[in-house]
Amino acid sequence: MSQATVRIPAPLRSFTGGAAEVAVEGDTVGEVLRSLSEIHSGLKQQILTDKDGVRDFVNIFVDNKNIRSLAGLESPVTEDAVIYIVPAVAGGGS
């Protein structure tokens, strides 16, 4: 299994005990995120849907690539990959 580093944005650090980075093993992005959710309960419902997809308000990047442009949660993870959880930021004046 590959060891990846998951970077946690500030709004989700209450689920990781304040940690900005968590090292997790897995061969796909989905495996890494599910393992992460097992370590830090409560995180899963923030980032994954019940049907094991990525929530609309979250983007997942592996290094520089959004996994939506790769193979989604099946995207492979190589040793020392950095996985970023990026909150979707939106709004408007009315």
Partner: peptide
């Protein structure tokens, strides 16, 4: 350093959050 917040403009609208802002907001920023 880190990202501590988000900024955006409201053209011709007050500097108050809209319903759209609320729908997409995150705690901690």
């Amino acid at each position: 350093l880190e990202i501590v917040g988000i900024w955006h403009s409201h053209p011709d609208h007050p500097a108050r959050p809209s319903g759209t802002d609320l729908e997409s907001a995150w705690e901690g920023y």
